[in-house]
């Protein structure tokens, strides 16, 4: 098992490295970080431009710049920023903000997918099944940002009608934050409610379809029939035999969707004006802040790769038939 984990980790490292190199070249070629400075009126002196170009390492060839950047990261040096922000100090708190949104949304979406998928499979071709299918298709066809604005407006109306802030609609926490541990937690959770709902709503429909079809498949299998024939209760067979088997491939599906979820988080955070990874990315791209964009891409891609690895391992743990190798 340990050897397998290590070998998979070794496979994952080149993927991240190649990915980071390609994106580094791509991001470097996507625009001149000093474009704004050069366009300034009255013109900025030549010496200042040269100094800035040197600070941004633009006087080095791309390969050298990549190497410089990559080797700096273990030391906590994420590279220079156009806006002179400390990228490392800026991005970690924001990653924490976005990670709690994505994590909660995945959990909520999983719960929804399980309930909807199992109920649809058990009551196949019933009114409930058709209703769930219709809702699933509708959510699948709805832009996340539209749903987000819609819910936000409903919440604002609700708050205005009751004359108090029942649901938070702006930001990831109150400014200034409340004092004490539990009030802070409650405040953060309160701000998470709407964005989590939006993200989970847009993520769960394909998952619930997946649960539904694998539940149907499993239900028709011989061992589930045998379990029923032995007189084990229907509910127990469903949970112990059918659901367990159906759940295993779901881990892979969810892990593969993680990058998509981060995309959704960017849009959702924009609507709710969070200071998370979303606004970090958007302003970095807008400012052509190469190293800030690279920090974002590297962190998120590492998270996606690691979770795919975890999903594979989980697969092996849950399904004994899978041979590690």
């Amino acid at each position: 098992m340990l050897a397998y984990v290590l070998r998979r980790l070794l496979h994952a490292v080149p993927i991240v490295l190649v990915g980071s190199f390609i994106t580094f070249v791509m991001v470097s070629a996507s625009g001149d970080p000093l474009g704004d400075l050069k366009a300034k009126q009255p013109p900025v002196p030549r010496a200042v431009l040269d100094a800035e170009a040197h600070r941004m390492r633009l006087d080095q060839p791309v390969l050298e710049r990549y190497w410089h950047w990559l080797t700096g990261i273990p030391r906590g040096d994420w590279g220079p920023s156009v806006k002179k922000i400390d990228i490392g100090a800026e991005i970690w708190p924001r990653l924490w903000v976005s990670a709690r949104l994505v994590t909660l949304a995945v959990l909520l979406a999983l719960a929804l997918a399980l309930v909807v998928g199992v109920v649809s499979a058990v009551k196949r071709y019933s009114a409930v099944d058709y209703a769930f299918t219709a809702i699933g298709f509708l959510l699948l066809s709805m832009p996340a940002f539209w749903l987000a604005i819609l819910l936000k407006q409903q919440a604002i109306d609700l708050n205005q009608a009751t004359g108090s802030t029942l649901v938070y609609t702006v930001g990831e926490a109150s400014i200034p934050p409340p004092t004490g541990f539990w009030p802070t937690v409650a405040d953060v959770l309160g701000h998470l409610v709407l964005p989590t709902i939006v993200l989970a709503m847009t993520a769960f429909p394909p998952w619930s379809r997946f649960v539904r079809s694998s539940m149907i498949e499993v239900q028709e299998s011989d061992y589930v029939r045998l379990a029923r024939a032995k007189g084990i209760k229907r509910r127990k067979v469903l949970v112990r035999h059918a659901l367990r088997t159906a759940l295993v491939p779901l881990t892979t599906v969810v892990a593969l969707d993680l990058a998509v979820l981060f995309s959704g988080a960017v849009v959702t955070e924009t609507v709710f004006q969070w200071r998370g990874m979303g606004s970090f990315l958007l302003s970095a791209v807008r400012d052509k802040d190469i190293y800030a964009v690279m920090a974002w891409l590297l962190l998120v891609s590492v998270i996606v790769v690691v979770f795919n690895l975890v999903a594979d391992l989980l697969y092996a743990v849950l399904d004994r038939r899978v041979r590690l190798g």
């Binding site: 981060f262 849009v267 990315l281 807008r286 964009v293």
Partner: peptide
Amino acid sequence: ADLVLIFPAIAVAAVLANN
């Protein structure tokens, strides 16, 4: 092919389409 899928599409698209 897998390499493309580890990056959130919206981030890469924003970078590429910015110009």
